[in-house]
């Protein structure tokens, strides 16, 4: 598999804080990769190292087969970046900023620009200082999406968008993937990542703690089961991998480690099943499991 981004043991300190502590991230070409973590986990630091704005203390980073620090300028013509906090020049109009950033990346498609302005419902004549946060975000998004680039680095790009515009953003990302572009989407909005991303990396305290497709990641967690049984529910509690069992007459609900799902269902069928609903684990549960350790750890 060809990689658009690889980092090996990337480390970066700010004073005594370890922002990145041996980060290994891999993003394949042509995929939409979710970069998931709460505020302060190191997402923006990673992206800023990939952009050559920050210099890593140690470790290795490769971006589109180049060195992000040394080859910054040539690499930047092949990518577009949308920061989480878009600040515009107060005296420049949104349209001027879009054109400026597009030209500095090597040109943008005027048809696509017009189409995106329309879809995001953005007035390009307003001055930077008069835009709301969401509209500033749209300016940077239109500039990035209308540029002819291979890679999009998006750092919490929907932070200020309303639900309607978030839907437009999702459509656009799907279109980008269909064009074969690679997207690194940093976010803490789980539903967004779940809806858009082929693969996900979860970052915690400057390290990747989990990485893979959603199916692979789900495999690591539990499935919720509710069942109406025709026989006695005795013995279910003793099955390996079953947690949080609640029995109400002939109804049971519990969670089961996903690798144990098959054994558990076989046992349920043995008892006799009148009704069954199962729900796959959400990314949120996965995420909370990784971070609830943090909360527990902080309590110690």
């Amino acid at each position: 598999m060809e990689h658009a981004i690889t980092t090996k043991n990337l480390a970066k300190r700010f004073g005594s804080t370890h922002a990145l502590d041996g980060l290994n991230l891999q993003v394949a070409k042509g995929e939409v990769h979710g970069f998931l973590g709460p505020n302060g986990a190191g997402k923006s630091t990673t992206i800023r190292i990939l952009l050559g704005l920050l210099r890593a203390d140690s470790g290795e980073a490769r971006l589109l087969d180049g060195d992000p620090w040394r080859d910054a300028v040539t690499l930047h013509r092949r990518l577009a970046y949308v920061p989480g906090d878009v600040n515009l020049w107060p005296s420049l109009s949104g349209g001027e900023v879009i054109d400026l950033l597009g030209r500095l990346r090597g040109g943008l498609d005027p048809k696509r620009r017009a189409e995106l302005l329309d879809r995001f419902d953005l007035d390009p004549r307003k001055k930077g200082r008069t835009y709301s946060k969401g509209n500033r975000q749209k300016v940077a998004l239109v500039a990035a999406l209308a540029s002819d680039v291979e890679l999009l680095l998006l750092d919490e790009p929907t932070a200020g968008l309303d639900p309607l515009m978030e839907a437009v953003f999702r459509e656009c990302i799907v279109e980008e993937r269909d064009r074969g572009r690679t997207v690194l989407l940093s976010s803490h909005i789980l539903s967004e990542v779940e809806a858009l991303c082929d693969r996900v990396s979860i970052i915690r305290s400057g390290r990747i703690v989990e990485s893979g497709t959603l199916t692979q990641l789900r495999h690591l967690t539990r499935t919720s089961i509710r069942a109406e049984l025709t026989g006695s529910p005795d013995g279910i509690a003793d099955l390996p991998g079953v947690h949080d069992l609640v029995v109400e007459g002939d109804r049971v609900s519990f969670e089961v480690d996903t690798p144990r799902l098959n054994d558990t269902l076989t046992r349920l069928v043995g008892i006799g099943v009148a009704g069954l609903t199962s729900r796959p684990p959400t990314l949120e549960e996965l995420f909370m499991r990784h971070y609830s350790d943090d909360v527990a750890g902080a309590g110690k």
């Binding site: 952009l51 910054a72 040539t74 990518l79 600040n87």
Partner: peptide
């Protein structure tokens, strides 16, 4: 935070 947007394009 306006410079980083420029320095992330093909500007040295």
């Amino acid at each position: 935070l306006r410079a980083e947007q420029l320095l992330a394009t093909g500007v040295s």
